[in-house]
Design a protein around this nucleic acid. Sequence first.
DNA 1: CAGTATCCGACATGATACTG
DNA 2: CAGTATCATGTCGGATACTG
Lengths: 105, 105
Amino acid sequence: MQILGSKWTFWVMGELATAPRRFNELRRGLGNISTKSLNDVLRFLEQAHIIHREVFATVPVTVEYSMTDKGKDFLRVYYTMQDWGEKWKGYDTQENESRMPKIDR
Amino acid sequence: MQILGSKWTFWVMGELATAPRRFNELRRGLGNISTKSLNDVLRFLEQAHIIHREVFATVPVTVEYSMTDKGKDFLRVYYTMQDWGEKWKGYDTQENESRMPKIDR
DNA sequence: CAGTATCCGACATGATACTG
DNA sequence: CAGTATCATGTCGGATACTG
């Protein structure tokens, strides 16, 4: 719950699911996350050993984030959530609303 | 993400996973959730058609919360998360810490 | 490029009191 | 029993500016 408690973690995982990414790559991939928020998420995931941070001594310096084994295994959760979302997408519509059990309030 | 965004949703789902429960049953089962928070969660899950609310005209009135089909299917997510948690429990310990990849900061 | 440092406001959660 | 209504507070996240 701590992991999914923050707003961006899920999508960061999504970004890293397929390939390692660098800081600004992640930022671009995520739309409009602030550097602060991205940093917070990355630090958290790193300290939880879900992602791995590797620094390359280029100029300017390059940093790559990738999944650890624990992180890769977490993708089970990610994909299950994604699948559930797809499956029930569009279910809560006006038409379906009428077929829903009436709730007596 | 909205579903798991709130602090208690996950455990409310856990309570309802096995059987329907009444308001105060949930409260007791969850430890120390405030009536407000519990209410908020229940309203949200209901409006998302994940749980069903049923009122029984007893005295005093009784209200039962139960999983909808959508909610039951969400338990896939719940159990996957739970399984992941179990699997990696105790991994981030002092002993393992030393076997972790060194992170150059 | 990959961050750090502040500041600030919105919102989530908790505590408390009250009701049909 | 099953809530509703308020009020207080902490924190999360965004905006902005700056750095090696």
